[in-house]
Write a protein that binds this DNA or RNA. Structure first.
Lengths: 343, 343
DNA sequence: CTGTTAGCGCTTTCAG
DNA sequence: CTGAAAGCGCTAACAG
């Protein structure tokens, strides 16, 4: 194939007429190198097409410039946005990103994903969908900086189970609360909830916000129906709800399920929002452009990931930030899919 | 932090009372190890929690179990599906995945992403959105196996520019052609096209299919309007088209833009499909559940990525497949957003 | 400011 | 079937 034999620092050193260590200094931008020598070495590097060998460096420094991230379902808007945000935030930081997707969020799958990353000698671990780090069966090497996207104030199982853990996230609970309150304020007696996949922390946070608003208002709390974040599951859940009767307002845990719910309402011969109001969560790009523009809750993924990754990198580099938990506000975006109930 | 000092093969060897080389044999499942010794070593490995050091191994073998992938916009349905498919296909293959996202698809951005990956000593490179490998300024180390998702038969600039390159993809051109033909068969005089981001190969393939169908039918070819794959851009493009007048059928290069286009038609006081037909591309999960279920073109991302990754791995391992190009059929999914033009 | 020496943890090669 | 020796390419620690 004509693969060029790889050139090493020693090769460059020979060409430049200096010691190998001097080449190392130039490559790493260390001080105390005479300008003339630095230039000569750089010329040799360019001519020979030298690239430092990451494995050799990692071997001796015992530290990798790699951050591992476990995520679920990269084609879901939320997880995909977090992945995109983390990648963006890492750009230019000198760290590489390794991603391990998990099929399910049970302990076995998560452990497999974590192990896969740990095997790669990662310097830090990002958990996109937080999991119970206190779980006795779940093993993460001690000393490995961990960041999880969660709502630290929720009292979710994650919090506090690992003292050095970073926990950041949008305040989804408050977001869900304000979505539900919005519906209640419009005059609905109660609000039905189509929740996300069972077991996800995001599901629990949104359920909690919905429940909170219902309780604050003294409204009846209908049983939760679980979907799996997909439009189809939203459609099926809403169909079931409608079948039970008495539904005037639905809060879906993401926009995709809200889309399915709207379709179900319309298939039942009813209109959104005149007969049934529907509110989503995420503010996916299409939410604004649906035939019935969707009222939803926006999370600032870019800001959350930027802050979080910055802190993770600091932790990895031995300068742990004072603030290890942070909640970014989520914002209700009012459009046209929610209205007062019909008389 | 109580970081446990890492245990090496030598540590395990001492504990098991064997040489370090024997531990190496056991770890790598090499033959010629007595069963009793193997068991003893495995016990020591388990007790001590030994994990092989990937950097040390990579250093000596000069080969990494890592595949690099450059992608754009992981929150777009197409790229996200390819990423997901590649990751799935790699699961259990023993290879890790490193992802580098690029902002733009100009040479500078692409080169930066490729360099980032190459620095990580990847064993193979996956290009999600294909680029012109023959571009003189674009440098990819010779001998590095490359896979790009493209339509080999298109005569796109990619093909053939690198003899050992693998090129696989869904037949988007044929998909776009059948979408356009469908509209024409319904009785539309011509079909307007909202194309994807300029410069993407996927954009060109879909434009080509649309043009082909128009030419085959002897229909007039209206100028292409470019969006950027987002619902907003589809909305704006359709608004512009409608403003020009004479539009009865729109083929959008992805479902997200189709969603925006439908919204634009409705905002203009027209109905889909009675007044204007709209067809999308991708068959994203929500397409089926929109208020007007979307007629669209489905690509089998799972199949394409499975096949492609399998061949890439074979190539990396020195057993290049006979077939280096492959086109998977794309399928028109007829729903309710396209109908005959109104009389 | 520059060079020398050692060794990271593993696989390769070659002896036993 | 098992082990000893060498060395991958680089950085750390120390001399000069």
């Amino acid at each position: 194939m004509g693969a060029t034999p790889r050139v090493s620092m020693t090769d460059v050193a020979r060409r430049a007429g200096v010691s190998q260590k001097t080449v190392s200094r130039v490559v790493n931008g260390e001080p105390h190198v005479a300008e003339a020598i630095r230039a000569k070495v750089q010329a040799a590097i360019a001519e020979m097409g030298f690239r430092p060998n990451a494995a050799a460096r990692a071997l001796v420094t015992r530290r990798n410039q790699r951050i591992g991230m476990v995520t679920m379902g990269t084609s879901l808007y939320g997880p995909a946005s977090i992945l995109e945000g983390v990648d963006n935030a890492l750009r230019g930081s000198g760290y590489y990103l390794s991603v391990a997707r998990t099929q399910g969020n049970d302990v076995a799958h998560l452990q497999a994903a974590i192990d896969e990353l740990v095997t790669q000698d990662i310097a830090g671990l990002v958990l996109s969908e937080p999991i119970d780090l206190g779980h006795p069966e779940l093993r993460i090497p001690s000393g490995l900086p961990v960041l999880s996207f969660d709502s630290p104030a929720d009292g979710s199982p994650t919090s506090g189970s690992r003292p050095d853990e970073l926990v950041m996230g949008a305040d989804e609970r408050a977001g869900a609360l304000s979505a539900t309150e919005h519906l209640l304020a419009l005059g609905h007696r109660t609000v039905h909830h189509i929740a996300g996949t069972r077991g996800w922390a995001a599901t629990a946070r949104r359920v909690a916000g919905w429940q909170g608003a219902l309780q604050d208002a003294g409204a009846a709390e209908p049983p939760v129906v679980h979907g799996d974040w997909s439009p189809r599951s939203g459609y099926e859940a809403a169909t079931e709800l409608l079948h039970q009767g008495g539904v005037t307002a639905i809060f879906a845990a993401n926009d995709q399920m809200a889309i399915g719910a709207i379709r179900a309402v319309e298939r039942a011969g009813l209109r959104v929002p005149q007969d049934v109001s529907v509110v989503g969560f995420d503010d996916a790009p299409e939410a604004e452009f649906l035939s019935t523009p969707l009222t939803t809750v926006r999370q600032d993924f870019a800001e959350v990931t930027r802050l979080a990754v910055h802190r993770l990198v600091r932790t990895i580099e031995g300068r742990p930030p004072a603030e290890r938990h942070r909640l970014i506000p989520a914002q209700l975006v009012i459009r046209e899919s929610a209205a007062p109930p019909s008389a």
